Simulated assay, not measured.
Amino acid sequence: MSEYIKITETPSLYNDLEMLDTKDILLNINKEDQKVALAVKRVIPEIELLVDGLEERFLHGGRLFYIGAGTSGRLGILDASEIPPTFGMPHERVVGLIAGGDSAIRKAVEFAEDDRSQAWKDLLEHKINDKDVLVGIAASGTTPYVLGGLGEARKNGVLTAGITNNPGSPLAQLADIPIAVDVGPEFLTGSTRMKSGTSQKLVLNMITTAWMIRIGRVKGNKMVNMQLSNTKLVDRGTRYLMEGLKLPYKEAEKLLLQYGSVKKAMDALK
């Protein structure tokens, strides 16, 4: 493994943080956060490649898998868990896996990320295959759990992408599609839950939202396939139908509950 400079470990641009008052701490964190969206903008071409790859493979039954450890793993699981209620997708089409298993979502599992062979074992439990896409997430770009999973996936014909905050890292070099977001040093040196984690969340939002739009899970600018899992979402869906079909509230609500989704109700009436 070649040596390279880990941007995520470089010293903060700020010093003597304990001497700052609360307002200055917050202003400086915000100043750093403003750099994140611009850093993400620079990797949009790579994100585009991934979205197009996902669209193509989805049409042939492919799925999206995320693997990561710590903050990165939790962000992948968060994104995966939000796709079914937001877009009405089956849970098994977007799967998030974290080093250490589900217990690591809430509490760190010591040294779980250092097991290079475990990710592929976890993925095999889901019968990953060459129709699928695997996205490894690691701010450092060196997490063994992630590198091991991506390496085996590539050997087996799976399209791979790597979301990292260190250009030139092992993850960036290994992935078919490297998405290396250079956000610079963290406000708190090495605390990648901050700018690095924020950039990962932005990229994940872009990947799955663009993908769901491309495969027809959105109409106009509306979430027409969302699950009706609470009163707020039933009300939102009802208002979508009111607007789209020019119906009074009660009639729109009745149709929504009858068909189970905005899209199904609209298709039935058309």
Rank of each mutant, 00 (worst) to 15 (best):
P85K: 11
A172W: 00
G197M: 03
T142R: 15
G88V: 03
S261T: 15
V95P: 02
L124T: 13
S169N: 08
A172S: 15
I163H: 00
S140D: 08
E32K: 14
R93V: 13
S191T: 09
K6C: 08
N225V: 06
L124A: 08
L123N: 00
T10C: 12
N225C: 15
G190R: 06
D267S: 11
E9C: 09
K219V: 08
K127R: 15
I128N: 00
W120H: 04
G149I: 01
M242E: 14
I44A: 13
R214P: 01
R193W: 08
K155W: 04
E110H: 07
L188A: 14
K263I: 05
I44R: 04
N205W: 07
I98A: 02
I47A: 00
I137D: 04
R116M: 13
T198Q: 06
T160R: 01
K131R: 15
P178D: 08
M1E: 11
L17W: 08
I213P: 00
L123A: 06
T8F: 04
G62N: 07
A153Y: 02
A252K: 02
K127Y: 11
V183I: 11
R154H: 03
V51F: 11
L188M: 14
E243I: 00
L228D: 11
G148C: 12
I47Y: 00
V43D: 01
G151E: 15
I98H: 02
A161G: 12
V40C: 13
T208Y: 12
I207C: 08
R93Q: 14
I207A: 11
G162D: 02
I137Y: 03
D267L: 11
E243Q: 14
A161W: 08
G220V: 01
I83C: 15
W120M: 05
A99L: 09
E125C: 11
L174C: 10
L245Y: 06
Q173C: 06
R239V: 00
I67E: 01
L228R: 02
L50Q: 03
V95W: 02
I25D: 06
L27E: 14
G53T: 10
V158C: 05
L50K: 03
T86H: 05
T71K: 09
T192G: 02
F187G: 01
P167V: 05
L247I: 07
K131Y: 12
A138I: 03
L20N: 04
Y4G: 09
G162S: 10
E243F: 00
G61C: 09
R214W: 05
L269P: 05
I179H: 01
L27S: 13
N221I: 02
S169D: 05
G216S: 11
R236E: 00
A265R: 02
M1T: 13
I137R: 03
Y66W: 09
Y249S: 05
K219R: 14
V95K: 01
A80V: 10
R236W: 03
L171V: 09
R93I: 10
R214I: 03
R217N: 03
E125H: 12
V133M: 08
G168K: 01
A172I: 05
I44D: 03
Q173W: 00
A99C: 13
T231I: 08
V146A: 05
R116L: 11
D132S: 07
E32D: 15
G73V: 02
G157K: 10
F58S: 14
T209A: 13
D132V: 02
V183M: 05
D130T: 03
N28D: 07
G68C: 09
